[in-house]
């Protein structure tokens, strides 16, 4: 589950220092290598039975080393070896044209588009809600407790309802999935933004009052700029769970397209390599999305003249 993890920390460490033995690069690399090693060992152990049985059924007598080698190349292994997943990824990402239904890029794009629409909707909703909550006391006292307690509810459970209800009034395709994403991801943004909008200390607010600034001016000039770090922290969490929402939203529709559909189809037909490839695709997509938000954060900070701590 964690071998793909090397991408982001590794990148960060390379940029940050030229002395890998001092940073986190070496420990991360060692642990990733250990995980890959364990993975191969586990693949050997878990696929042994199936491989040996297959040879027996075919009536071929094989020695132990031959079986060991064959465990790494099963078509439907219990646990595919890492290189099998890499080959599958290469096959479905690079070798297949992106318009084909067999291409992982095609499915990733289906999921990504509803993730992004949902993320946009959720961000807009979250920010508007936070601005309202900060300015209207009634909302703060009546709505906020519900927003918070709504998070103790397994919201993903209502995903099938949203899909089916919207489907029965004729809304299908991208929008229902996006609504699930939006519903999941507005929360961290609202919470972060409320905190951020309230983060300017009383002295700064008093200064705005001595300028006789209106509430709108205080919002634009003081509260919103001060809330940006909180906003981006929320956005990073939100974009990740937005992807989860889109993937889960693809499950109840019988899964025509998308990464969730690949997972479901893979589990129906026992195509383990396909499942793992879809999983890695989702992981790569998630890390790209989070990294993009981080990049936007850096650009915004720079353009606003923020000093790096």
């Amino acid at each position: 589950m964690t071998t793909e993890a090397a991408a982001i920390p590794g990148l960060k460490a390379r940029r940050a220092s030229f002395r890998p033995w001092e940073g986190n690069t070496l420990p991360v690399l060692v642990i990733v290598l250990a995980i890959v090693g364990l993975w191969y060992a586990a693949a050997l152990a878990m696929n042994w039975r199936g491989t040996a049985d297959a040879f027996e059924r075919a009536g071929e007598a094989r020695s132990a080393p031959e079986i060991a080698l064959a465990t790494m190349g099963q078509e439907r292994p219990m646990l595919p070896a890492p290189h099998q997943i890499v080959f599958e990824l290469k096959k479905t990402v690079i070798d297949t044209p992106t318009t084909s239904r067999r291409s992982l890029v095609y499915h990733a794009w289906v999921t990504l588009s509803s993730t992004l629409v949902g993320f946009g909707l959720g961000t807009a909703l979250g920010i508007v809600l936070a601005v309202l909550v900060v300015h209207v006391k009634t909302l703060e006292r009546s709505l906020m407790p519900w927003v918070i307690s709504s998070q103790t509810i397994p919201i993903l459970a209502i995903a099938p309802i949203i899909i089916v209800v919207l489907g029965s009034i004729g809304v299908t395709g991208l929008l229902p999935k996006s609504i699930i994403s939006a519903y999941l991801c507005f929360f961290p943004i609202t919470i972060g933004m409320v905190k951020g909008l309230n983060s300017p200390d009383p002295m700064q607010r008093d200064l705005m009052r001595t300028y006789s600034a209106s509430q709108a001016q205080t919002l634009w000039r003081l509260r919103l700029p001060a809330s940006l770090p909180y906003l981006f922290a929320g956005l990073k969490v939100a974009v990740a769970i937005s992807l989860v929402g889109a993937i889960v939203g693809e499950l109840p529709t019988g899964a025509q397209a998308g990464l969730g559909a690949r997972l479901l189809a893979g589990s129906y037909y026992g195509q383990t390599i396909q499942i793992w490839a879809a999983l890695f695709g989702a992981a790569i997509l998630a890390s790209l999305l989070v990294a993009t938000v981080g990049l936007v954060e850096r650009l915004v900070n720079r353009s606003m003249g923020a000093r790096t701590a």
Binding site: M1, N24, V244, T272, A283, A286
Partner: peptide, 29 residues
């Protein structure tokens, strides 16, 4: 400390992943 420096970035990274996707694999196992 070596373990911590290696595990912590990985742990932070994994918490951003759609871990729920392992469900079909666990059902298979």
């Amino acid at each position: 400390p070596f373990l911590r420096r290696g595990l912590l970035p990985l742990g932070n990274f994994v918490s951003a992943l759609p871990v729920i996707g392992i469900a079909p694999i666990m059902v298979m196992w």
